[in-house]
């Protein structure tokens, strides 16, 4: 089989997270032989992405949302907004899709060792950051303080709320949540206030010389977040952002995901802010 051909996978579970967002679990149809490593597409780093295709409809880039699992299960958190993801609203366990990947560079876990980590997610940006978060918790001893700031439009749009509240009960991590909409009912949601995401940074005491920030959110949140992080003393190189672009080939040829001199598919999608700083329109 040629490198880059999609491999057939089957949806194994479907969990509606909100009215427009679903968490899918999938498994490749040709599992690796016993003892062999995982199928390539099921072996990935947090922050990487794959290309998911529906036959006859098309292919779209989707971030990994979980961590590699020994049985090859892949978790993808998908918002139903586009030509491929809208038909996926009706997908059921047993349905077939095509997968190619993994692509891109993920979060630089190596440089995170013994460092305090500040994860900041906005909206659907929680999907790739959940992958990072789970990977960090698996090897909790490797890192310093772990903090998650997560904001969404309204309480009902907070993804993985049950998981996050469960995690927040342990001392492994501190979690602060925000919803944009004033007057939202926050009953039963501890650690949550009605505020815009950057305001959560006021609650955090960080030691800039030993902190890395990992951000993923809609483009609109990046500029205020980066400004605020800079004010708090965090160097550009310590701020990692995951960019969204329209990666079509995933392999550095098709030109769709160019961000200045970089290609989101091969140089990103996770970039440190120092790389992006001079590129107008990279963040917005």
């Amino acid at each position: 089989m040629k490198a880059g051909l999609p491999t057939s996978a089957t949806i194994t579970s479907v969990r509606k997270l909100t009215s427009d967002t679903t968490l899918f679990a999938l498994r490749c149809d040709d599992p690796a032989a016993a003892g062999a490593p995982l199928p390539a597409v099921a072996s990935f780093l947090p922050g990487q992405f794959l290309e998911l295709s529906l036959p006859g409809i098309g292919e779209v880039p989707i971030s990994y949302c979980g961590i590699p699992s020994s049985d090859g299960t892949i978790e993808l958190c998908i918002r139903h907004v586009g030509h491929v993801t809208i038909p996926l609203q009706n997908a059921k366990p047993g349905d077939a899709v095509g997968l190619r990947g993994p692509f891109g560079l993920g979060f630089p876990l190596k440089s995170y060792e013994n460092q305090d980590l500040l994860l900041i997610a906005g909206g659907l940006g929680m999907a790739p950051l959940r992958s990072l978060l789970l990977a960090l918790l698996v090897e909790r001893g490797q890192w310093g303080e772990l903090t998650l700031l997560y904001g969404a439009r309204e309480p009902g749009a907070l993804l993985f709320l049950d998981e996050l509240l469960y995690m927040s009960q342990s001392s492994d991590i501190r979690i602060y949540l925000a919803v944009d909409r004033r007057g939202s009912c926050l009953e039963g949601i501890p650690h949550c206030r009605a505020a815009l995401l950057p305001a959560l940074l006021d609650q955090v005491m960080l030691q800039p010389e030993r902190t890395h920030a990992a951000l993923c959110g809609p483009p609109i949140v990046y500029t205020p977040l980066v400004e605020r992080l800079n004010q708090l003393g965090l160097a550009d190189e310590r701020i990692h952002l995951s960019l969204e672009r329209r990666m079509k080939c995933g392999q550095g040829r098709c030109g769709h995901c160019a961000v200045g001199t970089y290609l989101c598919c091969t140089d990103g999608p996770v970039f440190n802010y120092a790389m992006l700083k001079g590129i107008e329109g990279a963040l917005v």
Binding site: S53, P55, I57, G58, K248, G255, H256
Partner: peptide, 20 residues
């Protein structure tokens, strides 16, 4: 630069690469 699109039905078809 190129784009990738499917042509055909859900049951059978081809994936194509074409100029963009």
């Amino acid at each position: 630069c190129f784009d990738i699109n499917d042509e055909g039905s859900e049951g059978k078809g081809v994936r194509r690469k074409h100029w963009d």
